[in-house]
């Protein structure tokens, strides 16, 4: 028996919004410690790694480890049927063919129940090596989203350059160039602060298309963490409230 309950479906709705444009399907690994998802986009350019800890749920029970293949589009449709204040309960039997989503509206005697067929999926798990990154930048997630949106108008790629002076985002195309530079702020730990930990300067280019998928996670938290090293994938990390995190890995572009 698997059962996981959140008194506010808002967080799960935001999680689905953060992955639905990037992933068509994903395997949800459920264990006693929580729910883990690792999945690549169809083009195998990026990887999503998500963790929802069992102690972050209002009720969590997982008697046997389950590996459930789910259609992200269908799951997203189902979560759209919940209002943000609804309590959401996910439930599955051992060796399930389906997963059940139940929504209870507080103060009302209404329960909505949706059952989704699970998908048989090939188990493809990638090993992500432990990496010490040359630059780790924490900045307001809304600021990052705005930069990605703004610069995407000017080119297909965004070049991120990080030095002691700050982090610079650039795009260039036929119509012109765009540059946004952020310096480290005096105070750290605030929601609007910019902090840069740098061992070595980096300069890498990434596809705007994918960065625009990642910023769909912006409503999840106020700060985003970008980890960069030359010639390795970017890690773009958002906390999922107090319950877990979502990390997007994006392979860099290289000169032709």
């Amino acid at each position: 028996m698997f059962e996981a309950r959140l008194t506010q479906s808002a967080i799960l709705k935001k999680v689905l919004d953060a992955i639905k444009d990037l992933l068509t399907e994903a395997t949800f690994e459920c264990t006693d410690s929580g729910i883990q998802v690792q999945a690549m986009d169809n083009a195998h350019v990026s990887l999503v790694s998500m963790n929802l800890r069992s102690d972050g749920f209002d009720k969590y029970r997982c008697d046997r480890n389950l590996s459930m293949g789910m259609s992200i589009a269908v799951m997203s449709k189902i979560l759209k049927c919940a209002t943000t204040n609804d309590t959401v309960t996910m439930r599955a039997v051992d060796n399930p063919d389906t997963i059940e989503f139940m929504f209870d509206t507080p103060g009302k005697d209404v329960q909505a129940q949706y059952e989704m067929k699970l998908i048989n999926m090939d188990q493809e798990h990638l090993g992500i090596p432990e990496t010490v990154y040359s630059c780790v930048v924490k900045m307001p997630s809304q600021e990052f989203a705005r930069i990605v949106r703004d610069l995407s108008q000017f080119g297909e790629n965004i070049t991120i350059a990080c030095t002691k002076e700050g982090i610079k985002f650039s795009a260039a195309g036929d119509t012109g160039t765009a540059n946004v530079k952020l310096a480290q702020t005096a105070d750290s730990g605030e929601s609007d602060s910019v902090t840069i930990e740098m061992q070595e300067s980096v300069k890498l280019s990434f596809s705007c298309r994918y960065l625009n998928f990642f910023i769909k996670a912006t409503p999840l938290c106020e700060q985003v963490q970008l980890s960069l090293s030359n010639d390795v994938p970017l890690v773009c990390e958002f906390n999922i409230g107090e319950i877990g995190h979502i990390k997007y890995y994006l392979a860099p572009k290289i000169e032709d």
């Binding site: 690549m40 195998h44 090993g127 994938p233 392979a251 290289i254 032709d256």
Partner: peptide, 13 residues
Amino acid sequence: MAQRSITSFFKKI
């Protein structure tokens, strides 16, 4: 510029 694949960095296990 050419796009690298994520699987060229992370191997299947």
